[in-house]
Computed example of a mutant assay.
Amino acid sequence: MIARSEITGLLLAGGRALRMGGIDKGLIPFQGKPLIEHAINRLGPQVANLVINANRNQTVYSQYGYPIVADENQDYAGPLAGYLAGLKVCNTPYLMTAPCDSPLFPTDLVEVLAHTLKKQGSHIAYASSQDPSGKIWAQPVFCLMKREVVDSLEQFLADGQRKIDRWFASQNACTTVFQNESAFANANTPDELAQLEKFTN
């Protein structure tokens, strides 16, 4: 089994949030406190230490007491750029990523993905959810990966690639399906944030 002490958590707060009007999503209030605080409270107990990937408002994020890492290039290349920034400062064998805008993700997320990663012998394990109709939806920003994938990811991005699923395929990534679909609900728009407010932890 992979021990908690072997895993660094990376919270992804580096996007432009265009559908949210360009507001920094991690700092948007949700149930009385910024979304990033919910993410910290969810992921923190599951990992050895935390890092926040942020490309703006870094001074504000630094007040939470965790290291802040920015994407290497300021072109907002998406989650993979955040993964790379996190991997480069990761000092544990594994990195676990989670976005700042999904405040209800499972409190056993890391444990479940760690079990899957070990069982499948893969380099990457990510979450998936199942909707009421039975359809499976990949949730690739919830991802546990071995630190050693850093060189592969760096080359992938250097080649101009941006698609998470394409990089995952190159790494023979595996997944676990979580039955609680709402656990991965995120706030891409004000309406989605309002919907999230209706859920309880």
Rank of each mutant, 00 (worst) to 15 (best):
P103S: 01
L117P: 00
P103A: 02
L113P: 01
H123N: 14
P106R: 09
I124V: 15
T107H: 12
L104T: 03
D101E: 11
S122K: 10
Q120I: 06
T97L: 14
L109P: 00
Q120L: 07
K118G: 15
T92L: 11
Y126K: 08
V89R: 10
P99D: 04
H115F: 11
S102G: 06
V89M: 09
V110C: 03
A127F: 14
V89N: 08
P103G: 01
M96C: 14
T92A: 12
S102Y: 02
A125Y: 05
T116V: 15
K119D: 13
E111V: 13
G121K: 05
D101T: 03
K119W: 11
V110T: 03
N91R: 15
C90W: 09
N91M: 11
K118F: 12
V89L: 09
I124E: 03
G86P: 05
K88D: 09
K88E: 13
V89Q: 12
P103M: 01
N91L: 12
K119P: 04
A125F: 09
P93G: 12
I124K: 04
V110K: 00
S102M: 08
L95Q: 10
V112E: 01
D108E: 06
P99M: 06
V112F: 02
H123K: 15
A114P: 02
Y126L: 09
H115S: 12
L113V: 06
K118L: 13
D108R: 03
G121W: 08
L113I: 04
C100I: 04
H123W: 10
V112K: 00
P99F: 04
C100E: 05
A114M: 06
S102E: 05
H123A: 14
V89W: 06
G121C: 10
A114C: 09
A98G: 06
L87N: 05
A125L: 11
E111N: 08
F105E: 01
D108S: 07
V110A: 03
A127T: 13
N91E: 15
L104M: 07
A127L: 12
H115M: 13
I124S: 04
L104N: 03
A127W: 12
C100V: 10
Q120Y: 11
G86A: 11
H123R: 14
D108H: 06
S102T: 13
K88R: 15
K118H: 13
L113T: 01
K119C: 12
A125N: 09
P103L: 00
C90N: 15
T107Q: 12
K119I: 09
Y94G: 08
Y126A: 05
G121M: 08
T92S: 13
L117K: 02
S102R: 04
G86S: 10
A114F: 05
C100N: 03
G121H: 07
T97M: 14
L117D: 01
